[in-house]
Write a protein that binds this DNA or RNA. Structure first.
Length: 266
DNA sequence: CTTCTTACA
DNA sequence: TGTAAGCA
């Protein structure tokens, strides 16, 4: 209760260059105790000692955020230490951390959404389908926040939005979810191909030696750029394939006198 | 007095 | 990983 905001050296802005351990903990969303623990285990570089207190910099903040991300992805502290050691071997910190953050960062720019059961029901015609609910959870479309499944996190609201739209159009939920499952397998294959392709043609030049800061920054920029590129290509190719398939279906299943009408919609 | 450290749960 | 007590 007696915590007073630190009196000096802050402009009130997010990006500072000097932190006391307390400020650092708050900025990184962790605790002082954890910062110490990370330091003890060699995950966090030591602070600059200035008189009685320690001074931390932006690099420490960056590192803490990285550790938090890796922790969230299920890595252990020991595992993270191995990665960090391997990466920082013979290199500076800045660029490499940027690369890691880029690779491990969120892959959609959407904000996760949060729904209670009633919200969910409202979105799907006011009825609840226990089977579909279970399938949605299994596929990760919904993440239950409690054992009772009273509220859910929606990591990818767009997917739920599509499901709601399809449902409104009369598509059964089981069909939507089954389709998502098989679609996902195909998409994962595409992602594998793309990453392999990138590794071969874009990142090959970095192979075989320790990355310099410049190279790491460059690689981080490439990663940032490649994701939207992949999405664009997939989007364009999917549109083309959809048109081709629709035409094929039209030719085989639709009576000739209706083709012109439907073709106009494509 | 405040901050850091240590040790214990 | 939180907390309490001792140290600088």
């Amino acid at each position: 209760m007696t915590r007073v905001p630190s009196p000096r050296t802050d402009s009130g802005l997010e990006r500072r260059t000097q932190y006391r351990i307390d400020d650092l903990a708050q900025a990184a969303g962790t605790t002082v105790r954890n910062i110490r623990a990370y330091q003890d285990r060699g995950l966090l570089p030591p602070a600059e000692r200035r008189g009685r207190s320690n001074v931390y910099g932006p690099a420490h903040l960056q590192r803490l955020r990285l550790i938090a991300q890796l922790l969230n992805r299920g890595h252990t502290l020991a595992g993270i230490k191995e990665l960090l050691d391997a990466w920082s071997d013979g290199r500076g910190l800045g660029g490499v951390l940027g690369l890691v953050a880029e690779v491990t960062g969120p892959w959609t720019d959407e904000l996760p959404e949060r729904l209670c059961r009633a919200d969910l029901r409202a979105r799907f015609g006011g009825v609840e389908d226990a089977e579909a609910l279970a399938a949605a959870v299994r596929l990760g479309v919904l993440e239950p926040e409690s054992e009772a499944w009273e509220s859910f996190l929606v990591p990818n609201p767009a997917v739920l939005g599509v499901a709601a739209r399809l449902f409104a159009l009369g598509v059964p939920l089981q069909a939507c979810l089954g389709h998502l499952e098989s679609l996902r397998a195909d998409v994962e294959g595409m992602a594998r191909d793309f990453v392999e392709f990138s590794a071969l043609h874009v990142f090959a030049r970095y192979a075989g030696h320790a990355l310099t800061d410049e190279e790491a920054a460059e690689a981080a920029a490439s990663v940032r750029e490649l994701r939207p590129l992949a999405q664009q290509v997939v989007n364009a190719e999917l549109a083309r394939a959809l048109r081709a398939e629709a035409v094929r279906l039209l030719d085989s299943a639709v009576p000739p006198h209706l083709r012109d009408v439907l073709a106009r919609e494509l």
